[in-house]
Design a protein around this nucleic acid. Structure first.
Ligand code: MN
Ligand code: MN
Ligand code: ZN
Ligand code: ZN
Lengths: 152, 152
DNA sequence: GTGCGAATCTGCAAACCGTGCGAACTAGCC
DNA sequence: GGCTAGTTCGCACGGTTTGCAGATTCGCAC
């Protein structure tokens, strides 16, 4: 997602208006790495702008997603989470606290059975386990999966 | 997921009762490769046993998941889908029709940035794109559509 | 086969997440 | 300042899932 001032220009260029509600959400989302839900954003937004409506938060998020400024993630079965990081990346979901971390995967190689005839346009990878703050400190990390080279 | 008769034994071994509702769901799920939702299972179950309740379908699915006989998949943001295939595998989700196909991935190798300190216990991969029946049929070697007599 | 008790089933209410809609409001423009 | 299209708001509603309590039934003991 671009900076608030760039988004402002982009919105106006499309004939969309700039409202205080939208500006607030731009700033709340910019560089936000928590992958917040709509409700989490509403809570923070509402603290700063008591009149804002949940409906507006949902609407603005939908707009940003359809403009490609934001992506929406359906992980873990709860509410949709939103991601202003538009670089190609994957995620790690902590089973315990629900934290969602950005993971950058390179040099991916594999053999797949079952993809014959399927016109794949991409793939999403979600690692699961425990994040650093949820791993008990006396237990060593898994030496195989938690290293540079991985095998499934 | 094991066969209905094996599940029957497993349930009784745990002090759980065998009811007609559970037996029906066992057979509906066994070898079911469609990754059905609870509602889809209810529809089929209800056709065969009109008195069955949605609540019982949800309850039985939850029980099977906690017994490790079934896994639940949250993909695409809609209703949870259930998978009796307990072998380690991944999925491909058709953007168009929602079909979910089993994909077996081998020899997976990659480098990841961001996993440092994360105690990963596994990863799920979801390919997205179009399944074979949803891919437009105007591909190079379709003998009918690509025949000159059928071209404009 | 009867009876008992615990497990299960059912139906409904309610929680949760998100969307549709229409009335009220406002940003951007003259 | 006024106009108007775009936006916001509040509420109702749809889809999915869970909580609950009363009715029912399975499995067992007699
Ligand atoms: Mn991310
Ligand atoms: Mn599967
Ligand atoms: Zn954590
Ligand atoms: Zn398809």
């Amino acid at each position: 997602m671009r900076r608030p001032d760039e988004l402002t220009r982009a919105f106006r260029a499309q004939g969309l208006k700039i409202t205080p509600q939208r500006q607030l959400l731009f700033t709340l989302l910019h560089d936000n790495e928590t992958h917040p839900t709509a409700e989490a954003l509403y809570t923070v937004a509402h603290a700063q702008m008591p009149g804002i409506s949940r409906r507006t938060v949902y609407q603005t998020l939908t707009d940003l997603v359809s403009m490609g400024e934001l992506s929406s993630l359906a992980v873990g079965g709860g509410a949709t989470r939103f991601d202003p990081n538009t670089a190609a990346h994957h995620h790690a979901l902590c089973d315990e606290c629900g934290a969602l971390l950005d993971i950058y995967v390179d040099d991916l190689q594999f053999r797949a059975q079952g993809l014959e005839g399927f016109a794949a346009s991409g793939a999403t990878i979600v690692f699961n386990g425990r994040c650093a703050t949820c791993v008990p400190n006396d237990l060593p990390n898994n030496p195989v999966i938690n290293n540079k080279e991985h095998q499934q």
